[in-house]
């Protein structure tokens, strides 16, 4: 798994779940017969709250799921959707797999690189965009496609992407 980004910053402030997230945390834990099974749901809640999974956040997940810290770090690095360093406000995830590639994904990605002045895995200096190549998003019939955070954008070309970027402030 060569795609796990390196951990680059530490947020020493995170100690516990904010009160506003307690209900979600308890709900997630209630779905399973053991606490370990809630580890992915807990990471999602953490990522919604803090935007990325810093080492203190992962330690909080480990305490909540009652798992050894190294194991939780190992789980976080296995899955590609967990951000192990901060990302921009708009995370552009462009599908590069075969069906989208047949419809022009490579050209679209190069266009985004040039327009934004960043490459795969990089963030614009103003923190607005992070650009990433990803694998199949299950939007093959409407390629090329990308997800901006969790939102699907399909049947894309240069003009449509340009218009979309204007709306992402």
């Amino acid at each position: 798994m060569s795609h796990a980004p390196a951990v680059t910053a530490i947020d020493p402030e995170v100690r516990d779940w904010p009160a506003s997230r307690r209900v979600e945390v308890d709900e997630a834990l209630s779905h399973y017969p053991n606490r370990r099974s809630a580890v992915l749901p807990l990471m999602w809640i953490a990522q919604r709250e803090w935007g990325w999974l810093s080492p203190p956040v992962l330690r909080l997940v480990a305490r909540t799921a009652e798992l050894p810290e190294p194991e939780v770090f190992g789980i976080a690095t296995f899955y590609t959707m967990f951000n192990l360093r901060p990302v921009g406000r708009h995370h552009l995830q462009v599908c590069m797999t075969i069906s989208c590639s047949l419809m022009g994904a490579d050209r679209l990605f190069r266009h985004l690189e040039r327009k934004l002045g960043i490459g795969h895995g990089e963030t614009t200096p103003d923190g607005r965009f992070t650009l990433r190549r990803v694998e199949c998003l299950a939007a093959c019939g409407r390629g090329p496609c990308m997800q901006v955070n969790f939102d699907y954008h399909e049947n894309l070309d240069e003009a449509r992407v340009d218009a979309l970027l204007e709306t992402l402030t």
Partner: peptide, 9 residues
């Protein structure tokens, strides 16, 4: 219950 994965084919 629903359970959300996190990016792994």
């Amino acid at each position: 219950h629903t359970h959300l994965g996190a990016g792994a084919y």
